[in-house]
Nucleic acid binder design. Sequence first.
RNA 1: GUCCGGAUGGUGUAGUGGCCUAUCAUGGAAGCCUGUCGAGCUUCCGACCCGGGUCCGAAUCCCGGUCCGGGCGCCA
Length: 433
Amino acid sequence: MILRTHYSGDITPEMDGKEVTLAGWAHETRDLGGIAFLVLRDRKGLAQVTLVKKLVGKELFKSVRSISRESVVQVRGNVKAEPKAPRGFEIMPTEIRVLGSAEVPLPLDPTEKVECELDTRLDSRFMDVRRPSVLAAFEIESAVLRSIRDYFYSQGVTEVFTPKIVAAATEGGTDLFPISYFEKEAFLNQSPQLYKQMLMGAGMDRVFEIGPIFRAEEHDTRRHLNEAISIDLEVSFADDKDAMELLEGAVVAAYRYVTENCLRQLEAIGLNLSVPKVPFRRITYTEALELASERDVKMQWGDDLDTETERFLGETIGEHYFLTDWPSSIKPYYTLPYEDRPEVCRGFDLMHPRMELASGAQRVHDHGMLVSRIKEKGLDPAGFEFYLNAFRYGMPPHAGWGLGLSRLVMTMLNLENIRDAVIFPRDRRRLVP
RNA sequence: GUCCGGAUGGUGUAGUGGCCUAUCAUGGAAGCCUGUCGAGCUUCCGACCCGGGUCCGAAUCCCGGUCCGGGCGCCA
């Protein structure tokens, strides 16, 4: 049995006289002597419950005074259109039940009147999410996921799951978290990359996966976490240009869906969101260096972009853009080099002015070339056998990318810290809650 | 990892050697109040991160630790 008939946000003055039951949290109470107000909050908004002493009787009136802030309450009563009340209506209660009382003092202030540091908020995340602007960000994140899934389905992409527990640190580069797997050593996967490529060899043609990735790096910034959600796509019989179109398509689909369907949440955050225009600008790595050379001469062709250069490019360009044609030396072995100039490869990054959102590439699909690229990177092909086998019996040309969900949401909502876009973030220090 | 900054009631803060029996807001307790909507008014409650040192005297200065924030690095 559902304990409410309506959410606060669903009630309008036109429902005057209707009996409703609301359930939520005691956002605040105000006792004026002969009249008292209880503001009830649920996920869709606030509703004012008005208690007139003479109407509700001493008992019920008195009971409201004993309800602590943030206690869970159920209120049965009648809607009354009332111009003096917020949103033009109030609830005239016949019954108020406390379903879960809240202790005092609270670990933070859910009414958002008193500021609160991020660390304090994360320690009591369950209460932090009661704050309307915090809840709104996570509801928008859900909308982003929904819209991107819808977009993928409209493009004929199949959703898959690949293992997060893997045998070895086969991808080189970043640090993996080791775990104990019965009598064997295992790791938490840092990317579904190898698996989604194998599924191209499996003939699944177009796949996507939305799932966690784990990186054991010691980075400690506002835009890095050790556990993140990655939106990964891989498509066969397609090249890097096709993959970029699908990427900008997914991003714009998300922005469009949010602007059309999350008005209440955007208002709670105080954000006026506009949809970026496609196609996004394409800028080659070499062009980016030339742009940056006006200010920064430290960068040499072949270096990865440092934070300062990245920020300069963002400020100069001012909107989403693709960085293409990277030096092969700083992209992973599975990125396809250009045939006529192998020092440059068909890898790309999707950039927001504030940071990198996604990276992808046209992949190497020739078995022999892949083996030599692995060797060139100083890795041992023997460790990649399970992966390389998929390239020996008919692997189609393919391309794909991985997009950071939290970075997408963070940049969309202009959040200061990536932890504002993850309900229970895992960073260098935080393992609880 | 590294550099810089910080740690004061439940929460957010003021306070740069004595004026601190520590400021303000929010909150909590008690009371008044029939239209609040960041309600108002009265009274009360509640804090200097830990350890060592300097000094007649330390929230304040020094050393070490812990934790936190920001920058950079690291990051296919």
